[in-house]
Design a protein around this nucleic acid. Structure first.
Lengths: 161, 161
DNA sequence: TATTGTTATACTCTATAACTATA
DNA sequence: TATAGTTATAGAGTATAACAATA
């Protein structure tokens, strides 16, 4: 019903805004909620083709065109070695291409393939059952609040630079 | 700037509400955002004492009083064997107590200790730097949207039963 | 027999450190 | 030398399967 939650946050609304943020206890709730949703998403989508790490990297490559492996790793906020591992099944499956960088013989340019785009589109259409089902159980107000927050959550993933 | 994001979601606002949910492409964005925030939270808090799994279990035990291990595992949506492993360091550190269940000799009752409560309180105060810092970089509007969505995100973690 | 919890084992994701090839 | 990427290894988190003790 109410999406504001009086228990832990309502009483702090003023000094929360004074700081331009959200009080620590509420941030903790957000942390826990994100961790738990993530765990359940991973469980719900295990064995459905791409893992989360692969999906995230593939979506990043699709969005930001050809990227060197190191750039991709930096944008995904993982070590280069992690990205090497994440990409291996994607290249093996033909979802991304790996071409030698003409400007630097040590480097590669990673780009999504046509097949990779198809797979991504399919995943976007079909692979959110668990989350979509739970969202379907929300009230219209809750749904609106969540919808409004999605771009904010995306902003939180961006570099603070 | 704008928290509504016209690109992928604005055009679908009506049929999204007709379904009582959010369109699949937007749900995908939410999935990816949660996964990426989670990854960055894990990185930012590695080596700070409790892991996320431990913190989540400890908070659950604090909130729901004495629980049998199986009940705790079910609420956390993990296998009992996973919970056994997660609890081991918590009991070793004296953050939770494990008493034989008087009603069932096979079972244990897990409860938070006074020390566990202290540690949780401290974590809630101090251990959200990365997330709090990024939230501090949001506009007031974004902050309000996020704040309103926190209870909704918590609702998404609850059992659909 | 069925259930509760534990142990053994395996897989994913990630990191650091050591290595190779190129700059 | 310094840098881009890879490989080796390790730790966290999770699962399934086999096992113990109890119901």
């Amino acid at each position: 019903m109410d999406t504001t939650d009086s228990k832990a946050t309502g009483s702090k609304a003023t000094d929360q805004n004074a700081l331009g943020g959200i009080d620590p206890a509420t941030v903790s709730r957000l942390r826990l909620a994100i961790a738990r949703i993530h765990r359940q998403m991973v469980q719900a989508s295990s064995g459905q083709g791409l893992t989360f790490a692969q999906l995230s990297a593939l979506a990043r490559v699709e969005q930001h065109g050809p990227l060197r492996l190191g750039e991709l790793a930096a944008r995904e906020r993982v070590a280069a070695s992690s990205m090497t591992r994440t990409l291996a099944p994607l290249t093996a499956a033909g979802l991304v291409g790996k071409a030698p960088d003409p400007q630097d013989g040590r480097s590669w340019l990673i780009e999504v393939t046509a097949h990779g785009r198809e797979v991504l589109a399919e995943i976007r259409r079909e692979r959110s059952e668990m989350l979509a089902a739970r969202i379907g159980g929300l009230t219209a107000e809750q749904c609106a609040a969540l919808h409004a927050a999605i771009p904010v959550l995306e902003a939180l993933t961006d570099e603070p630079e």
